[in-house]
Amino acid sequence: MGTIVNGINGGISGKTGSVIGSSWKSINYLKGLYKKSNKPATEEQLITQARFKLVMRFLLPITSYLQVGFGQKKADRLTPLNAAFQFNLPLVIQGTYPSFTLDYSKMRIADGAFYLGPPRAPVYADEELTVSWDMTNNDIYKTADDDGVYIICYHPDQDEFLAPASVPTRSAGTVTFGVPTHLLGGEVHMWIFMADRKKKRVSKSSYLGLIQLS
């Protein structure tokens, strides 16, 4: 793939001969046309495809969270989804092909240097999850009461995500949200991270563990 510098005719858009011109974030690109191969994939290619598919399948449904959590990572070159994919791919795959699984404890939903504070263990009771966090502001990191607190859960058996209906603030100190009936009796992995009001400064996410919903 080549990058085009605007000339007197500007960038190329669409198919031109054997190449396709496109633009992303004001950067013009030239890409060769895809050529379908009749050769069977090698084992190495199958392994790579399986790894890519497993990680991307997890990340795609939580794109809105990644837009905050990875929105500042190589923003001039990568989408938040691709930044999260590149970050997590070397870390979260475990097992051997074709039985790869994800190590959820290593999965990062956000990455940054903003202050999160020490994580606290979630509590499940009466079909509700409660998550609490440190409300204390940090002068060095310039945290504020209206910093957003992002919480997300993943139910592996049902392959579903669960989160509070709205984003609480640092000053709230806690949030409680219900668990749908069809998820009860299982277990969820949970993560938390924080971001300032403008979503420009973001903490790294903290894995809160595996919580039994029973």
Rank of each mutant, 00 (worst) to 15 (best):
P122G: 06
P180G: 12
T79M: 11
N138E: 14
A172C: 09
Q49N: 15
T3R: 04
T181G: 12
N28G: 04
K25S: 10
F100K: 09
I4W: 04
S203D: 00
S214L: 10
C153T: 11
M1P: 06
M56G: 00
G112M: 03
G10I: 07
D196P: 01
P164L: 01
V188R: 04
F85E: 09
K106V: 10
V123L: 12
N6F: 02
L89Y: 09
T169V: 03
P90F: 14
F177S: 03
L129E: 01
I109S: 01
T16E: 06
L59G: 08
E187G: 10
A75I: 03
V167N: 00
V149I: 13
V188C: 04
G209L: 05
T16D: 01
L30V: 08
Y65A: 03
D159T: 13
Q45F: 03
L30P: 01
I211W: 10
P90V: 09
A144H: 14
L116H: 11
N6Q: 14
G69M: 02
A125Y: 07
N9L: 15
K53C: 14
R120D: 00
L184A: 08
S26K: 12
N38C: 00
D139H: 13
A41C: 07
L116C: 12
V202E: 08
E127C: 15
G32A: 14
R108Y: 12
I12M: 06
L78W: 00
F177I: 03
I140G: 06
M194K: 08
I151E: 03
G209I: 02
T3S: 01
G95M: 11
F161S: 03
L129K: 01
M194C: 10
R197N: 14
I93S: 04
T42V: 02
V131W: 02
V92Y: 09
F161K: 03
K25Y: 00
G173F: 10
K198S: 13
L66T: 09
T174H: 13
F100R: 05
N137M: 15
D103L: 08
A172I: 08
T130V: 13
V179Q: 02
N38E: 06
K198M: 10
N137A: 06
S37P: 09
D146Y: 14
K36Y: 04
R120V: 01
